[in-house]
């Protein structure tokens, strides 16, 4: 077990503990300490804001809806809302804290099979994402802006089909490459 595995286990423990505690002071203290860590010790304002922004729209809509429905039913929503929001922020920040320190690929590698699954998938996801952005540029550079529905469907078919074919070809080739490099010799 390496350092990153331990960090992942620690992250799971933190998240489990956070999900059992409904004490506002604790949740707020946790929030404050990670925020201070990001802002003062690491100077990562951008990381902090981007992490929070990712959940903020969902939380705002959810909180607002809950506030209105509580008012209508004459309930007291404040404690509920504070705990709910703090807990979400705490969990998101814990995950960011983990990503700041650990290499997620190594963290998930609890066995060699898992390591290979994650590396193969992640590197292929990266390749495919780059290809996808190239495709969007192609769409912009080769087509007029207001394309017809039929054109857009045809382009989508071309793109989805391309990735489909590429995925199969790549799986077959990767299997061969692994074989050529002796991957299956001792298993």
């Amino acid at each position: 077990m390496n350092r990153d595995n331990l960090m992942l286990i620690l992250l799971f423990l933190c998240i489990i503990i956070l999900s059992f505690i409904n004490n506002i002071a604790f949740l707020f203290g946790y929030f404050l300490s990670i925020t201070v860590f990001f802002l003062i010790i690491r100077g990562r304002v951008g990381t902090l804001i981007s992490g929070i922004l990712r959940v903020l729209p969902f939380l705002v809509v959810l909180s607002f809806a809950f506030y209105i429905s509580s008012l209508l039913s004459k309930g007291h929503p404040y404690r509920y809302l504070v705990i709910l929001n703090l807990r979400v922020f705490d969990m998101v920040l814990s995950l960011m804290f983990f990503r700041e320190f650990a290499n997620p690929l190594r963290a998930l590698s609890f066995s060699s099979t898992l390591t290979y699954i994650f590396i193969l998938s992640y590197s292929q996801i990266k390749t495919f994402t780059e290809l996808y952005y190239d495709f969007s540029l192609v769409m912009r550079s080769r087509m007029v802006l207001d394309t017809s529905y039929k054109d857009r469907i045809l382009f989508l078919r071309k793109m989805a089909g391309y990735f489909f074919k590429k995925a199969i070809a790549r799986a077959e080739d990767t299997a061969m490459a692994m074989k050529a490099r002796g991957f299956f010799l001792y298993d």
Partner: peptide, 18 residues
């Protein structure tokens, strides 16, 4: 069998891009 890992990786990348 031997194609398991590459195919899982390919399908994962495919669903990610889809």
């Amino acid at each position: 069998d031997e194609k398991t890992l590459p195919y899982i990786a390919s399908c994962a990348a495919l669903s990610f891009v889809l």
